Amino acid sequence: MTVKNLYAYTLQPVAYEVSEEEQRNAQLVLSRSNYKIGKKAWLIMGAIIALAVLGIIFIKNYSTIFCWVAIVAVAIYLLVRTFGIEWYVKRKLKEVPVQEIKGIRLGVQPHGISMQQQMGMQTGNMTVGWKDIYEWYNTPEFILVNFKIKGQQGAYILPKRLDSKNFPFSTIRKHLTEVVGAPKAV
Rank of each mutant, 00 (worst) to 15 (best):
R24Y: 07
K102N: 10
A41T: 12
F169Y: 14
M115Q: 06
F169G: 02
N25K: 11
G154F: 06
Q118P: 07
I57Q: 11
P140F: 10
F169N: 05
T177L: 04
T139E: 07
W42K: 13
G154C: 01
V72A: 14
A75L: 07
G112N: 02
L78Q: 12
K148N: 08
I104A: 12
W130N: 00
A155F: 15
G120K: 01
T139Q: 06
K92L: 02
N125F: 12
A8G: 10
A8I: 09
E86R: 00
P183V: 01
K174N: 13
S31Y: 11
Y156M: 00
Y137R: 02
G181L: 08
Q27P: 01
D163R: 01
K150W: 12
P140K: 01
Q23N: 07
P168T: 00
M45W: 11
K36G: 12
K94P: 13
L54N: 13
A26C: 06
L79R: 00
Q109T: 12
I56Y: 14
S170I: 02
Q152G: 03
L6G: 11
Y156A: 03
E135K: 00
L28V: 09
V186I: 13
F147G: 11
K94S: 13
K184H: 09
T127I: 04
F66I: 12
I172G: 00
A182Q: 15
Y35N: 09
T10Y: 10
E100L: 11
L30S: 08
K39G: 14
L54H: 09
I104R: 05
P168S: 04
V96R: 06
G103P: 06
N25H: 11
V3N: 12
G151F: 03
M119D: 13
A26H: 08
I172E: 02
V98W: 09
I101F: 07
V18N: 00
D132L: 04
Y134M: 01
L78V: 09
P13I: 03
A52N: 06
G120F: 07
V145E: 02
N125E: 13
Y9L: 01
Y134R: 01
T171K: 02
I157L: 09
D163G: 02
K60P: 06
Q152V: 08
